[in-house]
Nucleic acid binder design. Structure first.
Length: 468
RNA sequence: GGUGGGUUGGCCGAGAGGCGAGGCAACGGACUGCAAAUCCGUUUACACGGGUUCAAAUCCCGUACCCACCUCCA
């Protein structure tokens, strides 16, 4: 079965049909860097990271472009508030985003352009749109440039709305607009805005509107037609609708498939900067291991709302612990080996609109089988199961033995020291057990447990691991 | 007012006309000096009211409730 994906635009599951056979080009909207990323933002990164890993595993060459919107009203306001340049605010949050990518094991995009880096391309695009009669400079001399919604009959096609049914944006001053629904391609410079937040154009100095940058970046780095455009469902309208209208009106076919991930809710409402109910990635990873957070975010289907709770996060950590326990036990017995091929049922689930929950059910079945092989002492069989399990985990970015997660380098020396100490205690415990002095044996185990070390008795002797 | 999505067992979470996804928790059993880990087994499902069908969690109609978008948002 070829890879299939739900397309938001046509509202159906469609086979991926790349513009260039063998290659997949993906654009997804990154962050507007007004603040550090919360776990809703990073859910999107994990979703697209899993998509990328699966397509690459399927033998496709993947290009991913994800933008960083480094200028907008709120960034300017924050700079003003904090008494420092707007670009310092944007850059700080961009670095926080990169740190979150890394801590959750997300492979960086192929390229990550900034909005302020494509101003010439935006100007070109506006000129094209004006020539074609789909955009106009504001008639009030403000320097704003608007897209003329009425000039583009298919406006609303992505979100399934008709222009006449849409509410007029009441908070946007309609002065220079021909229609209240027209949206800004470019915002004229206002007195009081920093000079550094403006660029010269044929219509005066100003700065990018929100939507145009994505059209300009996608065209520059992926071409006028590309395969998948992604982002959070909350961007479908107006952002993606507007991108689609701009690019098509400028004569570009644009994205073939639109892929939107559902939101992550907290207490029944979408986690968002404006609601204020956010949990920062940097905070959550203090309570739960990053790999467990990644498992939690990846385990639900990307089109299902995730209702965040501490309980379900803890449950996910336990569930992942079972998988990881098998991997570590099997690796200790049979050697780590390398991630192997994935079972056909796993591949079928992933090909079916990235059905990670079904794929995980396959993975967990193999873990159960592998555990049975370990219990039976079948080293060769356990090694084969390990290769399959690691292959599946690798696709999800969750292989505990991968260099991403097994950061042995930094603390390998410390581990050796701890190992020597723990092994000494385990030998004492074993001696006590042999002498049937169970009080002493249990005291040693309790001492280790209190220090945060789990003891596991196996047919090959006791093993220790740091609790997590 | 317009446009989408949802409501599944104690909990999380798939499925989308017949065959009990999976996980967590609980309980029982095996293993263990006792545990832990592991394996085996057990229990409680498809919001409500109608309808279609040999057969409905799944399709249709209605009702209730929830979420998202139409304003900045992943």
């Amino acid at each position: 079965m070829p890879f299939q994906l739900y397309d938001t635009a046509s509202r159906q599951i469609r086979a991926l049909d790349p513009v260039v056979p063998g290659r997949v080009s993906i654009y997804h909207c990154g962050l507007t860097v007004q603040g550090p990323p919360h776990i809703g933002h990073i859910r999107k990164e994990v979703v697209f990271d899993v998509l990328r890993r699966w397509l690459e595993r399927s033998g496709l060459e993947v290009s991913i472009v994800a933008n960083v919107t480094d200028i907008d009203d709120k960034i300017l306001a924050k700079g003003d508030e904090q008494g420092r340049p707007w670009f310092a605010v944007a850059y700080e949050n961009e670095r926080a985003l990169h740190a979150a990518y890394e801590v959750l094991g997300c492979i960086p995009p192929t390229y990550e352009p900034r909005a302020t880096g494509v101003v010439p391309e935006m100007i070109e695009m506006m000129q094209t749109l004006i020539e074609r009669g789909h955009a106009y400079a504001a008639e009030d001399g403000s320097g704003d440039v608007y897209f003329d919604v009425r000039s583009w009959p298919s406006y609303g096609e992505l979100s399934g709305q008709r222009v006449d049914d849409m509410l007029n944006a009441e908070d946007a001053p309609p002065e220079g607009k021909r229609d209240g629904r027209d949206f800004a391609l470019w915002k004229g410079h206002k007195d009081g805005d920093p000079e550094s937040a403006s660029w010269p154009t044929p219509w005066g100095r100003g700065r990018p509107g929100w939507h145009l940058e994505c059209s300009a970046m996608a065209a520059k780095y992926l071409g006028h037609e590309f395969d998948i455009h992604g982002g959070g469902l909350d961007l479908r309208f107006p952002h993606h609708e507007n991108e689609l209208a701009q690019s098509r009106a400028a004569g570009q076919p644009f994205a073939r498939v639109w892929m939107h991930n559902a939101m992550l809710n907290l207490a029944g409402a979408k986690m968002s900067k404006s609601v204020g109910n956010t949990l920062m990635v940097s905070e959550v990873v203090k309570r739960v291991r990053p790999i467990a957070l990644r498992y939690y975010l990846a385990a639900s289907h990307y089109r299902s709302i995730v209702e965040f709770s501490e309980e379900s996060l803890a449950e996910a950590a336990t569930a992942f612990g079972r998988i990881e326990g098998f991997v570590r036990r099997a690796a200790a017995l049979a050697g780590p080996g390398e991630p192997g091929d994935v079972p056909a049922e796993f591949a079928a689930a992933m090909d079916d609109d990235l059905s990670v929950p079904a794929a995980l059910a396959v993975l967990q079945g193999h873990v159960t089988d592998g555990n049975s092989l370990l219990t039976a002492g079948d080293t060769a069989g356990a090694g084969e199961a390990l290769a399959r399990v690691r292959g599946m985990l690798d696709v999800l970015g969750l292989d505990p033995l991968s260099p991403t997660w097994d950061r042995g380098g930094d603390d390998a020396a410390q581990v050796q020291v701890i190992d020597a100490l723990v092994e000494g205690l385990l030998e004492q415990r074993q001696a006590a057990r042999a002498a049937k002095d169970f009080a002493t044996a249990d005291r040693v185990r309790d001492q280790l447990t209190a220090a945060g070390i789990d003891i596991e008795d196996t047919p090959q002797g006791a093993r220790w691991s740091v609790k997590g």
